[in-house]
C-alpha cells in the first residue's frame, strides 16, 4: 500500500468510528429514557400521584412543591431578568463600564454549580434570615439561579426586534418607555415566553439546590411557603436512595413527561408566535 492509500484507509476507519459513536450515543440516550419509562410506567397509580403519604409513598407533596417552586422562581426571576435585559439592550448608550460589569456578573452566575447556589441559599435563607428549610428560600435561590438564563435569552429576543420599529416609534414622539412597552416587548414576546418556559424546565429538573434549601421532607404536604417541602426531582433521589426503586422510576416518568411537555410547549410557542410577527427584519 502506498502512503496515499494508507491515509485514505485511515480516514475511512475514522469515519466508521464516528458512525459507531453516533449509534452508541443514540443507543445510550434513548436507552436511558426507554428504561426509565419501562420500569416506571407500570408503577404509576392514583396512590402514588394523589394519595396521602402513609403506608405507601405518594408524590402529592412533591407535585405541590414543584409547582410552587416553579411559580415562585418565575415570578421573581421574570421581571428582574426582563428588566435587566431591557436595561442592557435599550439603555446601553451610557455607562459602558457598568454594562460590562453586569455582563460579567451574569456570565459568572450562569457558570456556578447548582450545589454552590444551594449552599448560598442555605446560608442566607435558612440561617441568616432564619427561615429554616422553606419553599420560599428554595424558590428565591432558584430564581437567582435562572436569572442569567432569562437575561441572556431575553436579550437575544430583544435584539431580534428590528431597529426600524424602534426608530419609527421614537420619531412619532414616543418616549423610550412607551416604545419598550408597546413595540419592543410585544414583538419579542414569543422569544421571551419561550425562554421563561425553558427556565421553568431548569427549575423543575433542579434538585441539588433544593437538598440544602427546602429540606426534602417527602411525606408532608407543605402548609405555606415557609414550610419545608420536596419536589419531583428530589423525590426521585429520595425514593432511589431509600429503597423504593419502583416509585423512583415512576416519579422519574412523571418528571420526564413534565419536561417533554415543557419542551414541546416551548417549540410550539415559538412556531405559533414566530410567524408574521417580525416580517420585515
Amino acid at each position: 500500500m502506498t502512503r496515499h492509500q494508507r491515509q485514505i484507509r485511515r480516514a475511512q476507519l475514522l469515519r466508521i468510528f464516528a458512525q459507531g459513536m453516533l449509534f452508541l450515543t443514540l443507543l445510550m440516550l434513548s436507552g436511558i429514557v426507554i428504561f426509565i419509562l419501562a420500569s416506571g410506567l407500570p408503577h404509576i397509580n392514583m396512590q402514588l400521584l394523589f394519595g396521602d403519604y402513609g403506608k405507601y409513598p405518594s408524590i402529592k407533596p412533591a407535585l405541590l412543591g414543584t409547582l410552587s417552586l416553579t411559580l415562585l422562581a418565575l415570578v421573581i426571576a421574570a421581571p428582574i431578568g426582563i428588566g435587566t435585559a431591557l436595561f442592557l439592550t435599550e439603555y446601553t448608550r451610557t455607562r459602558s463600564h457598568l454594562i460590562r460589569a453586569i455582563r460579567i456578573a451574569s456570565e459568572t452566575l450562569s457558570g456556578i454549580p447548582s450545589i454552590v447556589y444551594g449552599i448560598f441559599g442555605y446560608l442566607v435563607f435558612a440561617v441568616a434570615l432564619g427561615f429554616k428549610y422553606s419553599l420560599l428560600g428554595g424558590g428565591i435561590t432558584l430564581a437567582i439561579m435562572i436569572l442569567p438564563l432569562v437575561v441572556r435569552s431575553t436579550e437575544e429576543s430583544l435584539l431580534a426586534v428590528p431597529q426600524s420599529l424602534r426608530e419609527a416609534s421614537l420619531a412619532l414622539g414616543a418616549s423610550k418607555v412607551r416604545m419598550i412597552f408597546t413595540i419592543v416587548l410585544p414583538c419579542a414576546m414569543s422569544g421571551i415566553l419561550t425562554s421563561l418556559i425553558l427556565a421553568a424546565g431548569r427549575v423543575i429538573s433542579e434538585s441539588a439546590v433544593l437538598i440544602l434549601t427546602i429540606g426534602m421532607v417527602v411525606n408532608k404536604m407543605p402548609e405555606s411557603l415557609m414550610s419545608p417541602g420536596t419536589s419531583l426531582a428530589l423525590d426521585v433521589y429520595y425514593f432511589g436512595s431509600n429503597g423504593y426503586p419502583e416509585q423512583a422510576a415512576a416519579t422519574g416518568v412523571v418528571l420526564l413527561i413534565v419536561m417533554i411537555g415543557i419542551n414541546l410547549l416551548a417549540v410550539f410557542l415559538g412556531k405559533v408566535f414566530g410567524k408574521g410577527e417580525l416580517m420585515h427584519g
Binding site: L165, A171, G173, G276
Partner: peptide, 25 residues
C-alpha cells in the same frame, strides 16, 4: 414627523398603527 426609507409599520392593526401617536399624547 418622519417617514423612513423602508416602510416600517408596526406589527399591529392598521387602526393601532395610526392611533399610536395620538395615544402617546
Amino acid at each position: 414627523g418622519m417617514v423612513f426609507q423602508k416602510p416600517n409599520p408596526f406589527p399591529m392593526s392598521i387602526y393601532d398603527n395610526i392611533a399610536f401617536a395620538p395615544r402617546t399624547f
